[in-house]
Design a protein around this nucleic acid. Structure first.
Lengths: 222, 222
DNA sequence: TATTTTTTGATAGTATTACTTTTAATTTTG
DNA sequence: CAAAATTAAAAGTAATACTATCAAAAAATA
């Protein structure tokens, strides 16, 4: 599935100047993803990114307020992309069970190849989601940022899949809890499998995370 | 349950000088917990902690290498305490189901009062676990730190409860995955209920997190 | 009690981070 | 081609995350 024509849009409030509109902006996002994967969020700086793209620190600040904003941009891009895939792959389906099953697969599977949507490498982006995404909202400023709508894309995805759960079982009391549990859970499991294997049972091929959370949801909502 | 006689021991490698052995050390831990809750991990510094306890930054560095080490100390203290409670409250029980149920309660319930084990306020400590604990292992240095045994206490708890699952259903393939999912899940749910309520269904009294994860485990392993 | 050792406090210093500001050069657009 | 916008370079600031030194205070021990 290569669709270089479609565009994932990220909310205006997340950047000072839209990086999609210029070459430098695209470079910042593209190389920003690579460098953040390589160095990790803590060691990543705009100065280093500037050096990596042969540009200046101060130029990057004209696009993003801080590295935290850049992370928020990545996270929102990711969730917008997931939402797009969710709609595309489930919209036409009649069978509610099948619909939910596909949604769970999209939410819990590891992204291992670049799907080439615009200038973003989705496989690398997934690593940021897996390793760094929670740092975007486990912060003291979370309430203010939430008010500004910085987590909207994530919340929209949880709502969408929660609704699929309720379509199957309208009596079920904890759909959001269930869906956020499997999303965060799957990220943890892939991370644990790479770094803290005794906290998981994931095999080398990562094939059982999707399986585990799919049966989990089925059993829990029935 | 107040047992000021018992002592939670934290592995030697996690500090330079054992804070339990001196007044200053205890002050560092006690006020360190309060200040980290108050400011959040990112804004917390040893300089500020020094001011708070009327002591010097450099003196704190004689106990802990960095604020990251201090966080690791807190996290390990917490998991050692959980392990202690786990053993204490399940050891005498015969009924395997009952045993697991109590373990899940211990793992997923919010700690809201100071149980007064030594000089640590467990309710405040829980807030650190809920908001900051993942920052102790979602870092680039995770593999080296794991080799040094810095996450041992957490892994021991997961192993212990996974074993309880296997006692009930020896055929179950994903016990570690299940237990780490409910541990991390419950922390997320309490955090979401306070800051991102649309990601959860937790009510004001937080009563349904334990309920949700207890039924979840029961359904998944049967 | 005297003395040795350990612990702590105060001060200063370094390298890096996370920015902001200014100015000049370059590029884009009308 | 001129005006406007964008970018690069350099310098500056305040804070962080430490390290090092040295003297004072406290504790241990002989």
């Amino acid at each position: 599935m290569k669709l270089s024509c479609i565009n994932i849009s990220v909310d205006d409030s997340l950047f000072i100047k839209n990086p999609e509109t210029t070459d430098l902006g695209k470079k910042i996002v593209e190389n920003g993803i690579s460098l953040m994967v390589e160095l990790g969020y803590e060691a990543f700086t705009f100065k280093k990114l500037g050096e990596a793209i042969g540009s200046n620190e101060s130029s990057i600040y004209r696009y993003f307020e801080s590295k935290h904003s850049l992370l928020l941009y990545f996270v929102n891009w990711y969730w917008s992309w997931i939402e797009y895939r969710l709609v595309l792959q489930t919209h036409a389906l009649q069978d509610k069970q099948e619909k939910l099953k596909i949604a769970i697969k999209i939410l819990t599977e590891k992204v291992t190849e670049d799907k080439q949507i615009s200038f973003v490498d989705e496989a690398k982006l997934y690593k940021i989601i897996m390793c760094e995404a929670t740092k975007a909202y486990y912060i003291k400023e979370v309430d203010q940022e939430n008010k500004k709508g910085y987590y909207r894309a994530y919340k929209r995805v949880v709502q969408r899949v929660s609704d699929m759960v309720l379509e199957i079982n309208p009596e079920f009391k904890f759909p959001h809890m269930l869906i956020s549990t499997i999303i965060e859970g799957s990220h943890n499991q892939y991370y644990f499998s790479e770094h803290l294997p005794s906290l998981t049972d994931v095999n080398n091929k990562n094939t059982n995370v999707v399986e585990f959370y799919t049966t989990l949801v089925q059993k829990v909502i029935s």
